[in-house]
Design a protein around this nucleic acid. Structure first.
Length: 597
RNA sequence: GCCGACGUAGCUCAAUCGGCAGAGCAACCGCCUUGUAAGUGGUAGGUUACGGGUUCGAUUCCCGUCGUCGGCUCCA
């Protein structure tokens, strides 16, 4: 997850503690490679800290253990952190054999940037902190003594590569991530959270629950939806499509490939080529697999002359797109090469724009809430400083429309200055999952580029051609990613209405199979998805398996139930609801489905 | 794409120094006929990712390719 440093955090004791821990770690690493380790920067981050080094050889997990042990020794030494301010010249002398530090000092000296590369506002003060044998160029603050770091609440987590200053053209450094807390208990809790996140990993659950797979023989980043996953997707899509139709959208469909001409007009071949799959030659023509759906929706719009009376036009499509993503960035369902967007394009008159934004935002929250998300963070991304198309007046109007709509919605939002697309401003929505992680799915974007390039227009009241505003929006974003988020949010235990198998009928002995089948048929007629476990296994084993499949209801059926025409209901929470008539159970399931709980 | 680690049965993982590739679960065939999280016996399952090299001999050592994982960069 991206780390957002808030001012608040940087003033907390925990921040000082972690910052200090990173210095102690740097000392331990320096000692491991005397005279050879080049230090760079080592800030606190959410839940911990890191430090980037340029080292003569790659670090191993064993090194981490050694560094951690040495850190504990340094901590026990209870060395004071001593701050000293000095001139740039003196600092350069002090760090003469530390090229990265020299570069930082240069930056400070010329007032260009601080240690994070951010522009400085105040005249720079160059300071160093010394603890034990280690001195680092550092703004602070730190704890007073190394002994204030709890050696039992400290752990080094992993090593990875990181570019110097985050620039892929600059040297690759080795980054050590660590975490530090006030107490061992907090460390335990943090490690538990990491474990919990691992248990929820959609890649792991996708395999265990047989939802999907990604097979290298098919191709990296290309998803195979297995029957259970495909059913969940179908249910999600079915719900969303109905809601779209009920909210003024029209469903459209478009091909997976189109002529090169189309992508030249749209500008994709200029701006987006390296993300597109290579063209295919046919009939002296190059066809491209679509990376976006917009040109097709535009062609539908342009298939006839539009009157101002027809607007707004809202075209929605579950459109599958393919984008070439670099091999290293692929990640389960979260970052793939082929995915289906719940895409829509809204064409409206300028005067309709505010209401359209309101509607989209409201509709978006409605959909996300239906899937069980309740916490959102909105970001308003404005015009990029360089490279953008469209008139200043358009940008202003569109950005203000987005802002006004956000204000009306009551959502808290942050400004993402210059974060808009080159073709228009946008609102991004991030959703928080059950364990507090944020995911970006929804996006609402203005597009001035394609409206102009495809010469979109409608005939206004005066009989003149006018260019409509075009809004591009995706609510779930992509079915793949959203499904991944859903898996992690619910840890695979989806709400009843989305569960591929809602009920597992569990006959106790073979002689109860017939009754179980009869009940199952009755449930199926009531629209409930039920399986019967007729294996010659013990009831306990059947319960365990159903439990591990996170099936919401287990119906245990033995002699008593068969005689009474009842089912003994066990919930996946472990709760035993006891025996009840089949009709009563059906009502119970229907209620859960209807309330989407 | 970059840095690092990894790739053994459907799944999870073993295999000492380079010396006949193994276990549990799942699958299949039986026995047991079961009351709220794994009953039991047996059978089958492998070009150790792929290609090359070193060696009498490679899962093991070396090189390359592909893929996966942790990050970085990117993410209209």
């Amino acid at each position: 997850m991206p780390i957002r440093k808030t001012e608040k955090y940087s003033e907390t004791p925990l921040y000082r503690l972690r910052h200090s821990a990173s210095h102690v770690m740097a000392q331990a690493v320096m000692e491991m490679f005397p005279g050879q380790a080049k230090i760079t920067i080592g800030p606190p981050i959410e839940d911990g800290f890191y430090y980037d080094f340029d080292l003569p050889r790659p670090l191993t997990p064993e090194d981490l253990g050694q560094i951690e042990s040495r850190m504990r020794e340094i901590i026990r030494g209870d060395h004071p952190f001593v701050r000293r301010e000095l001139s740039a010249a003196e600092a350069k002398q002090l760090f003469a054999d530390q090229p990265y530090k020299l570069e930082l000092i240069e930056g400070l000296e010329h007032g260009a940037a601080d240690e994070d590369g951010n522009p400085l506002t105040a005249p720079p003060v160059i300071s160093i902190y010394t603890s034990d044998t280690f001195t680092d160029l550092c703004r602070g603050p730190h704890v007073q003594r190394t002994g204030q770091i709890n050696p039992d609440a400290l752990k080094l987590l992993n090593v990875s590569g990181a570019y110097w200053r985050g620039d892929e053209k600059r040297p690759m450094l080795q980054r050590i991530y660590g975490t530090a807390w006030d107490s061992a208990k907090e460390l335990e809790e943090y490690l538990w959270r990491l474990e919990e996140a691992k248990k929820r990993d959609h890649r792991k659950l996708g395999k265990e629950l047989d939802l999907f797979s990604i097979n290298p023989e098919v191709g990296p980043g290309l998803v195979l939806w297995h029957p259970k996953g495909a059913l969940v997707r179908y249910l999600m899509e079915d719900f969303c499509k109905r809601e779209h139709l009920a909210n003024g959208y029209e469903l459209v469909d478009s091909p997976h490939v189109g002529r090169g001409h189309l992508w030249e007009t749209s500008g994709h071949l200029d701006f987006y080529r390296e993300s597109m799959y290579a063209g295919m030659e046919m009939d002296n023509e190059t066809y491209y697999v679509k990376p976006m759906n917009c040109p097709f929706h535009i062609m539908i719009y342009n298939s006839g002359l539009r009157s101002y009376r027809e607007l707004p036009i809202r075209y929605a499509e579950w459109g599958s797109v393919y984008r070439y993503e670099k091999p290293g960035v692929l990640h389960g369902l979260m970052r793939v090469r082929g995915f289906t967007q719940d895409d829509a394009h809204i064409f409206c008159r300028p005067d309709q724009m505010p209401e359209e934004i309101d509607r989209v935002l409201k509709f978006c929250l409605h959909i996300l809430r239906a899937f069980g998300f309740t916490q959102f963070h909105a970001y308003l991304a404005t015009r990029p400083k360089e490279k953008s198309v469209g008139e200043a007046a358009q940008w202003e109007a569109a950005t203000e429309a987005l802002r006004a709509s956000l204000e009306r919605s009551g959502l808290e939002y942050a400004l993402d200055e210059g974060g808009g697309a080159f073709y228009g401003p946008k609102i991004d929505l991030k959703i928080a999952d059950a364990i507090g992680r944020e995911w970006q799915c929804s996006t609402i974007q203005f597009d001035f580029n394609e409206a102009a390039r495809f010469n979109l227009h409608y005939i206004n009241e005066a009989g003149q051609e006018e260019q409509p505003y075009m809004i591009h929006r995706a609510l779930l974003g992509s079915m793949e990613r959203f499904f991944g988020v859903m898996i992690e949010h619910y840890a695979g235990a989806f709400p009843v209405w989305l569960m591929p198998v809602q009920v597992m009928a569990i006959p106790i002995a073979d002689r109860h199979n017939e009754y179980a089948q009869k009940v199952a048929d009755q449930l199926r007629r009531a629209g409930i998805r039920v399986n019967v476990d007729v294996r010659t296994e013990r009831m306990n084993a059947k319960i365990r398996d159903a439990q591990m499949q996170k099936i919401p209801y287990m119906l245990v059926m033995g002699d008593k139930e068969a005689v009474a025409g009842a089912v003994a209901v066990r919930l996946r929470s472990g709760e035993d609801k006891g025996a009840m008539p089949v009709e009563q159970f059906i009502a119970m399931v229907n209620k859960a489905v209807d309330s989407r709980e």
